[in-house]
């Protein structure tokens, strides 16, 4: 983990409020693995105090790519960077996950900007020649990003839009279920999912019912991003009297096995109280 001032080498407006920021950082690029994130310092704002945790989207030699959807003041600031600007980054952070090389078939479920942490895994499994199937859902055709790249990276790729303007019409989780009805489960299946909570809940319920190993990539407000402040915790599903009641999303995740998470966390209304 380092703190660095990285130069912006490129920023692409992908439409539908999505931006791909590329920064030069040999140290972070060299140390990043799928499942890692960086904490981006947002400057010039009294309202945005905390750094913004952003998944590593991809690494191209010395450059780190971050996919951002401009939805608030912090992400808007990121989207307004220009080549030559300096961005203060802390990273790579997170546990990273590279122990699933025994997977025989990797099923990815992405909802909207949830594609961000999964793309890097797809490149990783592509290199390992492990079969990947991607279900990628968004509101409409404009919000489905990197279509050509994803078709190239995956063995099967199903685009799903709510309005039917691209691929299947409906919800990505319906397509996931349909796929399994048609193909059945196979030994060595691993599911990765990232997206809104209602999507994650459906994926986790499905994986539980089918006994498929499932990893979800979660988000939270984070303080330090490095395991010291204990702010970004999520509740554990099972814990003994002495066991930890919570996981630290920053250092135990943010990609985490869904079978250790208290399922109430996936309820839209979950707020602890």
């Amino acid at each position: 983990m380092i703190q660095t001032r990285a130069i912006v080498t490129n920023i692409r407006d992908l439409g539908a409020d999505y931006f791909l920021l590329e920064v030069e950082s040999p140290e972070i690029a060299g140390a990043s693995k799928p499942g890692h994130f960086v904490n981006v310092l947002i400057q010039d704002s009294a309202r945005v105090v905390l750094r913004r945790p952003i998944a590593v989207f991809d690494v191209k030699s010395n450059r780190v790519q971050l996919l951002v959807k401009s939805i608030g003041e912090g992400t808007r600031w990121i989207s307004l960077r220009e080549p030559g600007d300096v961005v203060n980054l802390l990273g790579p952070l997170g546990k990273g996950l590279f122990d699933k090389t025994d997977a025989k078939r990797v099923i990815m479920v992405a909802g909207g900007v949830g594609l961000a942490p999964l793309y890097y895994y797809l490149t990783y499994y592509k290199e390992l020649n492990i079969k990947t199937v991607l279900f990628y859902g968004a509101r409409n055709a404009k919000s489905i990003l990197f279509q050509n790249e994803l078709l190239e990276l995956t063995d099967e790729c199903v685009f799903v839009t709510e309005d039917g303007s691209l691929g299947e019409k409906g919800l990505v989780t319906d397509e996931l279920r349909r796929y399994y009805l048609e193909h059945g489960t196979a030994e060595g299946d691993v599911v990765f999912a990232c997206g809104p909570k209602f999507m994650l809940k459906q994926v986790v319920d499905f994986a539980d019912a089918e006994h498929i190993e499932c990893f979800v990539s979660l988000e939270s407000f984070m303080g330090c991003g490095a395991g010291v402040c204990l702010s970004c915790v999520i509740p554990a599903r099972h814990y003994s009297q002495d066991g930890d009641k919570y996981f630290k999303l920053c250092t135990d995740g943010p990609v985490i096995n869904s079978n250790i998470i208290d399922k109430r966390y996936f309820e839209e209304s979950y707020a602890g109280h």
Partner: peptide, 18 residues
Amino acid sequence: RSGNPPPRLVEAVGGVIN
């Protein structure tokens, strides 16, 4: 102590609340 239920951190103008 296992601590308080999440969320445990939120921003406000000029600071954070934990």
